[in-house]
Design a protein around this nucleic acid. Structure first.
Lengths: 351, 351
DNA sequence: AGCAACTATTAACGCGCGTTAGTAATGATT
DNA sequence: AATCATTACTAACGCGCGTTAATAGTTGCT
């Protein structure tokens, strides 16, 4: 149990003061240090295997070098989320460059305020990214006034917080229009999540607008709510089928949920796209590997993560961006699961 | 920009000393405090919205209240990992009870030593869990000597570090035996990852042993290596098909990879399980929702996470468990993707 | 020589908290 | 009455580091 190596040890070995060590290792150029001295210090540090204590550094500098990713969902809802790894992938990649750490947290509905206060006031993190925020999150107000940089992954109307998101409404509209162009008129919709999640509401709105523009009446009986995971997609589709409503296509606002819908359709002996066309959302990796391959709206989780991080770092540096929100592009990727109405054929033949 | 609230403020308002505040808020019973005094302190703290500064607390107590989850993989390899969310889900759930934080890190091969040293010496975390460790990780030795609790998610032969894992070898053997019992003799294998990952090696070994016990010669030409993601499964299966080797079943040591294999088979016009039987590994949520549903070895990511965390907390408390490693059960779940050889029938008919 | 203007370095303070050693006040025991 | 134990609290130090204000050392200029 060897004693911990402190900057004093480095100073002693190098024959300088602790201050000099700090200046050298932190590249403080304001006070000039002779190159040979700096070299001596660096050598001593390396020789001793010196790593500055994170807590002490954080305390003295008032910077933890950690950012927080807060997920507004209970753990059981993230267990089967194929989108989260993409976010993490992008974030971890970006963080490494600045040698920052990522603190992962989740908040349960009802505890948001408490959690945010704890996180910001206790200063565990220098900035935070809020994933899938909820419209009814009472803690957001507190964050607006907290003196810590915050970026929302997802848009909250009326909030003064900065945000990064795709244009969910337009993307959903494009997806549904795609189905309409293929001749479909009876189009059901399964949301990606409960409606307090803005992305769910926006995508549903996009669906409605597309219908409206095509002069199709919106029918609430054709809408089901899912909640992130596959099982909920399975249930939603089953419920649609059992309702005896007629429809020839379904817009499912999440690929993961869509794959649950696949399962329900297959179980019912219905063929995609011969009987039912499906359009998903997110373009998760699996979308191009299931059978039939899933038409989807491509959203890059990595890109959202990187963009969020960039925005956050700018906020942390103090230079306010001109715009409050960054909107990322989406792209509809037609695949086998959506097809002209009435047309039948060997699946995948057109690839 | 209101000044930060410190414990001194609380002390002043309550009319006691800072020490007393500390005793009350940290439930230090060694020095008894009169109940009324304690109540005064708690009230003052609440009134001021006092949250103890995490860095200062960490520095003084030598405990960060954070544990680290280290992933031995580059970000692009985690982007499509459906198993990671399960681990995170379990871990986050367990952590909340002890109000600890989760610091997520990844290490790139070649940087392990450096990263581990930084993480432990700089004392960012109180303990660490190492996910998917590699056999050839040169940093593990250093961790054995570091005075920080470490738990490996996955077994490394010869390491003195504690570990939590499923019995990969036995599980793989069971999976392959299942195929053999169904009459298959020519069974290919696609690994879940590169062989330096022990889970990959062990599962491959299980495959070999099952063959051996059945008196089937091992043929290296029937083995392909994948690396976590779907695409690699697609490639591996494609390579198998193009090799013109004959086989009637494939053991794929990862569900995610197996779904890539599904795609390649479907593209080649082959039917599962009529032409080829498939057994996967992990039983990710999607396994029971794809078509045909995927026979798999059930491994609970949540359980692994929770067990790892329990082990870690015990190590952090200082009471060494009797055994160095915890082995979790697995269970083969037969589904539609594996079927008696030669038998043909309508897919899913037996459900 | 004398003064200013740098350059290189350090002493010393503060960040906010945990904790030990010690004090004052009260009650119990001889 | 004197001693001791117990209760209820506090003064003061240390955790390891960043940083400011001050100090010695050097060079340039008149």
């Amino acid at each position: 149990m060897s004693r911990r190596v402190t900057s004093q040890d480095v100073a002693d070995l190098a024959g300088v003061s602790r201050t000099t060590v700090s200046f050298v290792l932190n590249d403080v150029h304001r006070f000039s240090i002779r190159p040979e001295t700096a070299e001596k210090v660096r050598l001593a540090a390396q020789q001793l295997g010196y790593y500055p204590n994170a807590s002490a550094k954080a305390l003295a500098s008032n910077q933890t070098k950690n950012i927080g990713l807060i997920i507004s969902r209970a753990p059981q809802y993230i267990a089967s989320d194929p989108f989260l790894p993409q976010i993490l992938s992008g974030l971890l990649d970006a963080l490494k460059e600045n040698s920052q750490g990522l603190l992962l947290e989740w908040v349960e509905p009802g505890q948001q305020l408490q959690t945010y206060l704890e996180l910001t006031r206790a200063h565990h993190i220098d900035g935070m990214i809020l994933m899938t925020p909820r419209l009814d999150d009472p803690g957001l107000r507190a964050l607006e006034e907290a003196d810590i940089p915050v970026v929302l992954m997802g848009y909250i109307p009326g909030s003064s917080l900065h945000s990064v998101d795709v244009d969910n409404l337009a993307a959903a509209e494009t997806a549904v229009s795609h189905l309409i162009k293929l001749g479909h008129r009876c189009i059901a919709c399964i949301t990606n999540a409960a409606l307090p999640y803005t992305s769910a509401t926006q995508r549903l709105d996009g669906y409605k607008i597309a219908l409206q523009k095509a002069g199709i009446a919106f029918d609430p009986a054709l809408v089901r709510e899912a909640d992130f995971d596959i099982r909920s997609g399975y249930r939603a589709m089953k419920s649609l089928l059992e309702s005896k409503q007629k429809f020839t296509a379904v817009f499912v606002a999440s690929d993961n949920v869509a794959l649950g819908a696949y399962s329900a359709l297959s179980e019912a002996g219905l063929s995609i796209p011969d009987d039912i066309s499906i359009v998903g959302f997110d373009d998760i990796p699996m979308a191009s590997f299931v059978s039939p391959t899933l038409t989807s709206v491509a959203v890059s989780g990595q890109e959202i993560a990187i963009e969020s991080y960039n925005l956050l770092t700018r906020l942390m540096r103090g230079d306010l961006p001109e715009s409050r929100s960054v909107t990322l592009p989406t792209r509809l990727i037609p695949r086998q699961s959506s097809r002209e109405i009435g047309r039948r054929g060997k699946r995948g033949a057109e690839n």
